[in-house]
Design a protein around this nucleic acid. Structure first.
Lengths: 203, 203
DNA sequence: ACCTGAACACCGTTCAAGT
DNA sequence: ACCTGAACACCGTTCAAGT
C-alpha cells in the first residue's frame, strides 16, 4: 500500500500497475492477488489513504457552515486534482473506506449545522461529492493533461467559431462561456450547489 | 466510425480497441492512425455520433423551460447510461463535435428562456452537463457494473453499520441516505441544480 | 495454507519499409 | 503520398505447481 502510494505520488496512477508493484516488491504479479481482489479495490484503498490527509473542520462555528463546507469541498477537490486518473476511477467506484465515511459525515454535519433537512442533506452529499470528484477528473493537471490541452483548445475554438445561425444561444452567451477565473467559477458552482440543495424540497 | 459504433453498441466501449477495429476492417492497427489521432479522439467521435440521436426541444413553450430542461438532461443521461465507460472517458475530454455544441446551445436556450442571466447560464451549462455525464459514469449498467455492484454493496454496508460514536451525522441521516428511488433522486438533483444556477448571482 | 512462475489473452502507438 | 507488418513496451488476471 505504501509502495503504491509512493509510485502514484511520484509517477501518477498510470504507473501503479500490478506488474510494477510486483517488481517493486521483488515478486510476480500473481502474488498481489493475495492482498487485493482487483485493480478497483486497489484504487479504493489509494483514495482512502489520500483522504486521511484531509483536514476536517473542527465544527465550533455553526454560523459559518457555508464557508466551512465550501472550504472542505475545495480541499477535497484540490487533493484529487493532483491525481485526475484516480478521480476518474473513483467516479466508477462506491468508496467505502473510513476516511471517505468521515468526509461524508463532515459534509452531513455542516449541512445539518445549516439547518438543511436530513433528506435534503443526505441526497445533497452525493451531489456535492460527485461534483467535486468530477471536477478533479476533468481539470486534472498531470502529464496526460498536456495532450488533453489539445482537446480544450479544440472545444474553445469550436465554441468561439460556432456559427451564429446554427448556434444562436452560444452566440448570445459567447463572451460569458469563457469568463471568470477557474477559482471564481468553482466557488460559484459550490455556492449554487449548496444553495440548490438547501433550497429545494425533496418529494 | 460506423464499425466502432456497432462494436460499442454490441459489446461495449471496452471492446472498441484499435486492434479490434483493425481486425474488423481487415487491416493492421497502424492503419487507423491515418484517420484518427489517438484513442481519445475516437471516443470524442463516438460521443458525437451517439448525441446526434438526441432529440432537442422544439422551443415553442417558453413557460415550460424548467421541465424541458430536465427532460433534455434526463435524455442525455439515459443515452450515456448505456455506455458508462464512454461517459467516464468523456469526463476527461473537452467534447467539441457539432452534436455536443447543439446540446450546449439547447441548454443555453432553455436557461435563456427562463430569464437566467447570460453569465449564470454560461457557467451553469458546465455544471449541468458535468453532473449528467458523471451520473452516467457512476450508475452505468453494463457487464462491468456487475462487479461494481460488489462495491455498492460494500459502501451500503459500511454506511449502514457506521459506528454512531465515530460518525454521528451519518447516524443522524442514516435512514435518508438510501431513501427514494433513483428517479426521484435524479429529478430532485436536476431541480436543485437548476434552482441553484438560476438563483445564485455570479461575481 | 500460502505463495508464485509462467502463461493466457490481450493492449496503444511507432516506424521502417513497401506500393 | 499513402498505407501497413512487425516490433516495442507494456497490460490484468488465472491457475497449476511448488514450498
Amino acid at each position: 500500500m505504501t509502495v503504491a502510494l509512493r509510485v502514484m505520488r511520484e509517477e501518477g496512477l498510470e504507473r501503479v500497475t500490478m506488474r510494477r508493484l510486483a517488481a517493486e516488491l521483488d515478486t510476480g504479479p500473481a502474488s498481489l492477488y493475495v492482498y487485493v481482489e482487483n485493480m478497483a479495490e486497489l484504487h479504493g484503498a489509494l483514495l482512502d489513504a489520500l483522504l486521511s490527509e484531509l483536514e476536517l473542520p473542527a465544527g465550533g462555528d455553526r454560523q459559518a457552515w457555508r464557508e466551512e463546507l465550501i472550504r472542505l469541498l475545495s480541499a477535497y477537490t484540490v487533493l484529487l486534482l493532483g491525481y485526475p486518473s484516480l478521480a476518474r476511477s473513483v467516479l466508477a467506484l462506491r468508496p467505502s473506506g473510513p476516511a471517505y465515511l468521515r468526509l461524508i459525515d463532515a459534509v452531513l454535519g455542516l449541512l445539518r449545522a445549516g439547518g438543511v433537512p436530513a433528506r435534503q442533506a443526505a441526497w445533497g452529499v452525493d451531489l456535492l461529492l460527485q461534483y467535486a470528484t468530477a471536477t478533479a477528473a476533468e481539470h486534472g493537471t498531470r502529464d496526460e493533461a498536456i495532450e488533453a490541452a489539445g482537446e480544450v483548445y479544440h472545444q474553445v475554438t469550436a465554441i468561439r467559431e460556432a456559427d451564429p445561425g446554427e448556434y444562436p444561444n452560444i452566440d448570445h452567451a459567447r463572451d460569458e462561456l469563457f469568463s471568470g477565473t477557474g477559482d471564481q467559477r468553482h466557488r460559484w458552482a459550490f455556492t449554487a450547489l449548496v444553495g440548490g440543495i438547501a433550497g429545494t424540497a425533496t418529494p
